[in-house]
Nucleic acid binder design. Sequence first.
DNA 1: ATAAACTGTTTATGCTATAAACAGTTTATG
DNA 2: CATAAACTGTTTATAGCATAAACAGTTTAT
Lengths: 257, 257
Amino acid sequence: MPQKDPSLTDLPPGVAIAWGLDRPSTRGAKAELSPARIIEVAIRLADKEGLAAVSMARVAKDLGFTTMSLYRHLRSKEELLVLMVDAAFGDPDLAAPEVGDRAEPDWRTATRRWAKAIEQRYREHPWILDYPVTGPPASPNELLWLEQLLRALAPTTLTASEKLNSALMLANLVRSSTRMELDVADNDTPDAFEAYVGLLFQLLDPEQHREVLGLFSDPELAVMEDAGDELSFALERYLDGMEALMARRGSGADQPG
Amino acid sequence: MPQKDPSLTDLPPGVAIAWGLDRPSTRGAKAELSPARIIEVAIRLADKEGLAAVSMARVAKDLGFTTMSLYRHLRSKEELLVLMVDAAFGDPDLAAPEVGDRAEPDWRTATRRWAKAIEQRYREHPWILDYPVTGPPASPNELLWLEQLLRALAPTTLTASEKLNSALMLANLVRSSTRMELDVADNDTPDAFEAYVGLLFQLLDPEQHREVLGLFSDPELAVMEDAGDELSFALERYLDGMEALMARRGSGADQPG
DNA sequence: ATAAACTGTTTATGCTATAAACAGTTTATG
DNA sequence: CATAAACTGTTTATAGCATAAACAGTTTAT
């Protein structure tokens, strides 16, 4: 962990490394390990066995080093996790098709595209969803994703704080929808769903829980016609909501919250 | 942990206890401890020192018993957490004012009321937000909250699966908005925000991150005029979106997602 | 040549959840 | 009534966790 500049020491975990602020060391034995190698192996492990399997000891073992060797390159496990998540998000190369389709997409299309793209990353590395969001993004790829979303919203008439709020909510929406879809995909055999509903009917008071029971008795639900499209549904609702705000704004009208 | 009925053993953690399915034991020494007492002390601890402070050893110590004594009443720490969360949500006594204001509120008002009420519970027990949502609700109070939300949505023209999707998304929306607001309230001195923005300007390439930098330079943001109202903003957007769907539905028109 | 800076290992600490065995207590059953 | 079953709480023990501290070896700047 080469770090002479003391100002780097008190940056949030992962920031210094993710941004390449730690200058390479000149003295000392040449390192066999590196943050990048550690992160790569840790991500492979998380992909295969989930985030719970990622311990410092296990990652080190997979690398063929001792546990403590990792601490020469990472300040803490927290730092490892931050860097794993950022690397797993990766660069959002939403390369606009330059030739042929030269028209800028409207903000809804661009936002939808963004949502599907980040959903894909969640599906490739579902364990990202097990790492709780701490605060505003400070790592390179997360900021690139935010940038892309803000570019999608740029043509709108939203104010700055409306844009920021919307962007954060859209990110949350994709995150929680995808989490729900993956949870369901993991646990829901047809049996499990029926077992759940059966349990509800056993436990719930039909009077006190009439809506819940009514809903789960609805034949439409059993068909699960739109299963796996919770994201689209939620997204379109939210986009409609943004559009309604802009329409009100555009027509000069204004209404209290 | 009195449990003779073996069918109770393989219910999800917390379900048997939360629903009072474990019949009281007749033989044996009378218990000094009980799930309720343990949960109560654990919640007090979490309220004061956060969820991270809640270990079996610490809870037992606060109770004046040995660590292992807890396992006579709870099958695992997971079970304790499930029961803590359900107890912390509590009963949603959204008592409709019976006299005088006898008019049923419209669905938007009712939903808004629900959202503010559950937000209040999050604020009283912020550590609920640190416990990840696992699957569909199966504990009594969580189901009561779901019931109340479904009652708010009952008068709408949404289909069953649209209602369920909307309810789950509204729950997610309140959860993540409140989490954001609390995170900000915890960490954001004016200094911290400026430090964050300063860091961004140091690290980001003005070309590659023009929208992010532009946004954070916007004087409107610095004022933080709508700080602490992320929930209302997101909620009204989503409600508008639901309304737009119903309007389209009502006018017979239909559009592809 | 020497000292500084770095890498990786060994050893150790204190925390975590929880399994297993045991002692004591109450009650249902012979 | 005696005994066995069922329960409660304690003691002891284990395996895992993150990470601090000391140490040995290596490379390079001085």
